[in-house]
């Protein structure tokens, strides 16, 4: 009774099990991609201009991202923090002019890009966090006479260093 059908049925089940496995693995891969991705957040204590208003740097501030160790920020200090995942919180502590400690409420934020920058003066001024954080685009400083693309020389030198060929590599 079952004999005629079973082979095909088993095949079907196998096919769907395999399909399911592949889908689960793809889902896992996508999850890992987002979960494991490391982004850098630069916490910045420079004077800045947000929506046309300038904010002066804080004289002293302490910022803690997630549960990582808090670090102090003096004027014109910028530090990069490697972070995993998208959503994080930041807790800022600062002083007013009379040296009273002010602890700001922890704010939750999403990183907009792989390299983001968050402005402490903006946060201290009470701006919404979305305005204070933006993508970090490193400024390219061009030194006259030095071409930015001229790195081939370095690689050639590295190749020449390898006098006896590549057989002595550490295994």
């Amino acid at each position: 009774m079952i004999k005629g059908k079973s082979a095909k049925e088993i095949f079907d089940i196998r096919f769907f099990v395999r399909l399911g496995c592949i889908l689960i693995i793809i889902a896992l891969a996508i999850f890992l991609y987002f979960y494991g991705k490391q982004r850098t957040l630069y916490v910045d204590n420079w004077s800045t201009e947000i929506n046309g208003v300038s904010y002066r740097y804080a004289d002293w501030a302490e910022a803690q991202v997630d549960d990582l160790a808090a670090s102090e920020y003096n004027p014109r200090v910028r530090r990069g923090i490697p972070l995993r995942g998208r959503t994080h919180t930041i807790t800022v502590t600062t002083e007013d002019d009379n040296f009273n400690l002010i602890e700001l409420d922890p704010v939750e934020f999403r990183l907009p890009a792989d390299q983001s920058i968050i402005s402490l003066p903006g946060l201290i001024a009470g701006l919404p966090v979305e305005d204070c954080i933006k993508e970090f685009i490193p400024e390219v400083v061009e030194i006259p006479g030095v071409s930015a693309t001229d790195t081939s020389g370095g690689e050639e030198a590295a190749a020449e260093e390898d006098l006896f060929g590549d057989m002595s590599m550490d295994f």
Binding site: A29, L32, Y33, G36, K37, Q38, R39, P82, R84, D114
Partner: peptide
Amino acid sequence: NIVGIPGLLLAAI
């Protein structure tokens, strides 16, 4: 820029 064990797992996948 995927780090740590999740990164290695993804590399394996």
